[in-house]
Write a protein that binds this DNA or RNA. Structure first.
Lengths: 196, 196
DNA sequence: GGACTGACAGATATTGAAATCTGTCATCGC
DNA sequence: GCGATGACAGATTTCAATATCTGTCAGTCC
C-alpha cells in the first residue's frame, strides 16, 4: 500500500507499531512490517540495522509520547505543590488509561520495556528532571523546604516512592479498588515530606 | 529415602522446596517431589489436594520466614523513627541478600509470587500491620505527627512508597550501584513526612 | 481401618523435522 | 548512483506425534 511514497524511518516505525499492536511482541516480524509497507524486508534493514534496533526505536517513540503528554502539567500556572500533585496524578492517569484501555497492548509495551532497559533509564531520567524542576520552583516559592542533599536526589526519591503507580510492572494492580486511595495516600505522604 | 519416617505435610513441603530449587518452577513436578520422598505421587495428593495448593503452601512458608526475620526489628528497643528505618533497611537487606545470593532461586520465587497473589496480599497486610505498630509507637512517643487519615493508611503509604525496594518484581534493579542511595533517599523522604 | 500404591484418562510438556525469520549482499531498475 | 530487491545461510519458531504429568480411585498391605 502507498508504495509510491518514499520509505522513511518514520513510516517504518508506524508500520512496526501497527504490526506489534496486531500480532503482539512474540509474533511481530520484520517481514510483517515490510508487508504492511508493501516493500521487501531488505528495505527495512536499510533504515534499521537490526530488528532489535527497530523495536528500540518504537519503544523510544512510545515513551516520548508520555513526556510530551506531561509537559502541560509541568508548565502549568499555579503553586508548585499543586503542580506536583497534578503532574503525578496525570502520570498515573495516563499509565492507567493505557493499561486499562488495552491490556494486550500494555503487555506488548511491557515486553518492549523489558528489552530496552537503557532506553527506559533515559526516559526515567527525563521524568526525574521534570520533577526536579517543580521541586526547584517550589523551593523558590517558599513552599518546599531545602532538600536534604540536592533537588535531583529528592526528585528521584519522589519518583521512586510513587513507582508503584507509574511503573508498568505494576499495571495489574492499578485496576484494584484501593489503587486510587493508595495513590492519594502516597502523594499526601510525599507532599508532607517536601513542605517547608 | 527415609521411607520409615511418617509422611507429613511438613516433609512434603521441604521436599517440594528442594525440587523447586533444583529444577525451577517450570520443571518441578509432583512426581519429582514423591521421588525425593521415596513414595508414590498418590501419597502427596493425600496431603495436598492439587499441585497448585502445594505450591501455594510453599509460597506461604517462604513469606512467613520474612515476617519472622523482621520481628526482632519490630520489637527492638529505641525510638520509633530509628526502629522504622531499621525495619525498612532490614526488609531491603533481606530481600536483596536473597536476590543477590541466588538469582535463580529468586526467579523461582517470583513465579510462585505471581501464581499466588492472594497469599502475597495477606503477607503484605502483615507487613503493613508491623509498620502500623511502629507508627503508633512513634506517635505515642511524640516523634510522629498524627496521621492524615489513620495509621493503617499511612502505614500502607510507607509500604507502597518503599515498594521498589522490597517488591521482588524489582529485584533486578537492587544490584545496580545507585540502589543503596536511592533507598536511603526514599527512607529519608518518608521520615520527613512522618516527623511531627 | 487407614495410609499407601499404581494403573488410568485427560491435560500438559517435549521433541525433532519442516517452515519461517533474520540479516547479508550481489544484482536490478530508474 | 542509489534506493530497492530477493535469494541465501544460519538461527529461530511452529507443529504434530510422542512422552510425561496431574489428579482419581479401586485395591493392597500392615
Amino acid at each position: 500500500m502507498a508504495a509510491t511514497e518514499t520509505l522513511t524511518a518514520e513510516r517504518i516505525l508506524e508500520a512496526t507499531e501497527e504490526v506489534l499492536r496486531r500480532y503482539g511482541p512474540g509474533k511481530a516480524t520484520v517481514v510483517d512490517v515490510a508487508r504492511v509497507l508493501g516493500v521487501s524486508h531488505g528495505s527495512v534493514y536499510r533504515h534499521f540495522r537490526t530488528k532489535a534496533a527497530l523495536r528500540e526505536a518504537v519503544t523510544e517513540r512510545w515513551l516520548e509520547r508520555t513526556i510530551v503528554a506531561l509537559t502541560p502539567y509541568l508548565e502549568a500556572e499555579g503553586p508548585a505543590d499543586w503542580r506536583l500533585t497534578g503532574w503525578l496524578t496525570a502520570l498515573f492517569a495516563l499509565k492507567r488509561k493505557k493499561a486499562g484501555g488495552d491490556p494486550e497492548l500494555m503487555a506488548t509495551f511491557q515486553v518492549l520495556i523489558g528489552e530496552n532497559s537503557a532506553v527506559v533509564d533515559r526516559h526515567e531520567e527525563h521524568l526525574v528532571e521534570q520533577i526536579t524542576r517543580i521541586l526547584e520552583d517550589g523551593h523558590r516559592e517558599g513552599l518546599f523546604a531545602a532538600p536534604e542533599r540536592d533537588f535531583a536526589t529528592t526528585a528521584r526519591a519522589v519518583f521512586d516512592a510513587t513507582d508503584r503507580f507509574h511503573n508498568p510492572a505494576h499495571a495489574a494492580e492499578w485496576s484494584s479498588p484501593g489503587a486510587e486511595d493508595a495513590f492519594a495516600a502516597v502523594v499526601s505522604l510525599v507532599q508532607r515530606a517536601l513542605r517547608s
